[in-house]
Amino acid sequence: MKPITRRTLFAATAGTAACSNPPSTAEKPQVQILKAPSYGQELFETVRRIFSHAKLDLRGKRVILKPNLVEFDPRTAINTHPMVVHAVLEAARASGATDIRIAEAPGHRRISWDVAEAAGYFSEIPGFTKLFTDLNTADFREVNIPSPHSGLKSLHLPTSVLGADLLISIPKLKTHHWVGATLSLKNMFGIVPGAIYGWPKNVLHWAGIDESIADIHKLLPPHFCIVDGVTGMEGNGPIQGTPKQAGVLIAGHDMPAVDATCARIMHLNPAMIRYLQLAATNGQLEEGAIIQTGETIASVATPFALLPRFEPFRLRP
């Protein structure tokens, strides 16, 4: 019998509460699951299908594409693959967006350009240098957090992100050694400016990682997410794990619903991930509360290796 820790007991209890109030059909979030076996040219068509299905009309809009860039290690798959970002860029252009920026504030290395170059963004994304905004040093404004879960009352966030008509979170499908998994919600740590909070943004850790993730979620402009699960990371993510081929893109407007679907694909119980419990205010962690389109979860699910401390998070049949 596995020992019950305070963490797992709390997670299970809160998870039950989060799942007890499913949304009505009219409010049900939609999540698309599409097979994407490689980072080849077919990704462009796959992402166009995602945009089309979501009816993303971006004519005249300001759009921020927010990948996950942390640091580069050729032995593993830490960062969002540049081909996915390129495909989203082209789909946003085709949908009529007039002002598109690729924006990120890497959390460990402060030379964002070095991380982006090493990760292949310069070579794979035409005109990347003109498209990129380093959110670590961009202009910002202070935003109060309504009813914060964390110890934070406010955060300074980039004006370019806050003023976007659409923020597209493009994270990597990865395990995370502190919170279980890092997906579209955790990716939003990367809009917090290092020039104020440092590298890493340790303020968010001391205020509570799960709680800070949920608080940042409250401050976001209209958003959409496309999770790069072509090759994810398992084990000791988000940096020192091993590549995990999952061959899938997961997309939708509702971050908790998208992340809950990602968790199920990774064989993780979303109800055990505390930040999902905090961010899901509409019962959207429950599988039946989400309208899944495209592939079924069962057809793409593949168990991600977990650190022993996260085995209680494992989704059981």
Binding site: I196, Y197, G198, W199, N202, V203, H205, W206
Partner: peptide, 13 residues
């Protein structure tokens, strides 16, 4: 030294 008060110390600061 930390980057920000009431947080941990790091190499650069």
């Amino acid at each position: 030294w930390p980057w920000y008060v009431d947080t941990a110390a790091w190499v650069a600061p």
